[in-house]
Amino acid sequence: MDIDTTLAWVRGITAAIRRDADYLTRLDAAIGDADHGVNMQRGFSVVRSTLDGKEFSTVGEILTKTGTALASSVGGAAGPLYGMAFRAIGRQLTEPSATAEQLLAALRAGLEAVQKLGAARPGDKTMIDAFGPAVEAFEKALRGGAALGASASAAADAAEAGMRATIPMIARKGRASYLGPRSQGHQDPGATSTALIFRALAEAVAP
């Protein structure tokens, strides 16, 4: 993964979020406060203007700046969580390009940052439930001999499966937790945006 691919990833997320902002907001309306799509769209439009026209010498620089921009513009729960995740990912990738192995370690660091900050556990119906399976699947594919493209594609599939798996869960973190059992039957908005992020990665690194 080089600088161009990384920029393509971030652009891909930006486009996907813009396309699905309304959907994310509607998911959040059902079990939250109807702002997740609006928040993410605002955040990624700040990311775009932060990155636009800049030159970068490492992959990590792009992702750290993305994280900083998200943290300072998204607000809500998702802002610090995604902000810290991208910053953690970026901090691992200190060269102009990254290997699949390095990317895996970075993604794992991102997941850990979310878990450290948000204290959510698998099954709590949060972005963790897409993020975790995605990292697992990425690792499994890589260990199984897959290339970067196929590993990222496996991660995206797993993120989407994890996202759908949030539907029957009872939320125990974030705003949806206030609904208790009434949160069942609804897909978690944060897990959904996480799935978009992994799908954009798979598309950016596709051979």
Partner: peptide
């Protein structure tokens, strides 16, 4: 209705109410 969302955060029937709401337009318990 959150202005940017453009539609109500939840739907309530004409004879219904939500108990245990917060202050963010989220449904109650």
């Amino acid at each position: 209705t959150v202005p940017a969302a453009g539609r109500p955060t939840f739907e309530l029937g004409d004879d219904e109410m939500e108990l245990g709401i917060g202050i963010h337009g989220e449904p109650g318990r």
